[in-house]
Amino acid sequence: MGLNILIVDDSPIMRSMIKRILNLSGLDIGEMRFAGNGDEGLAVMNAHWVDLVVADLNMPVMDGFEMISRMRGDEVLRNIPVIVVSTEGSGTKIGKLRGMGVTGIVHKPFSPEEILKAVNEVVYEAANEN
C-alpha cells in the first residue's frame, strides 16, 4: 500500500513543487491530497486516510501550529507524522514545533533532497513506533 500524503499550504506553487518532488522521488505513493489551510487540512484528514502530512506554518484561516495542536489532541489523528516546510526562522517557534513532536522540519528555500530526507526519516520513525 502506498503512502497517502496530504500537502497543506496556502501557496498553489508550493503545493505543486512538493507534489512534483514526491512524484519523482520513487516513493510508493498512494493518494496525494491538498489543502489550503489548517482547517481544510483537518477536514481532509477526517474524511480520508492520511499517512503523512506535509504542512506550511503561516497560512490564513488556521495556521500550521493550530492544525498540529488539534491533531495531537485528536484520538485518531494524533499519531500521523507531520513534516513542516516553512520559512520560519524563529528558534522559539522551532522549539515549539519540536515540543509538539514534529521532527521533520524543512526550511524554505529547500532542495528536493531535503524534502525526501525528511520524508524518509519521519516515515521510518513512524514505522518503528508502530
Binding site: 496556502d10 501557496s11 503561516n58 516553512s86 520559512t87 526562522g89 524563529s90 528558534g91 522559539t92
Partner: peptide, 23 residues
C-alpha cells in the same frame, strides 16, 4: 517574496524573536 521575508527577518532581529508573516 515570502521566502525572502522569512529568511531576512531573523538576520535583522536574531533568531529568538517571533514574527507573524502575512500571506
Amino acid at each position: 517574496l515570502n521566502m525572502i521575508c522569512g529568511n531576512l527577518l531573523p538576520l535583522i532581529a536574531g533568531s529568538a524573536p517571533e514574527f507573524s508573516i502575512g500571506a
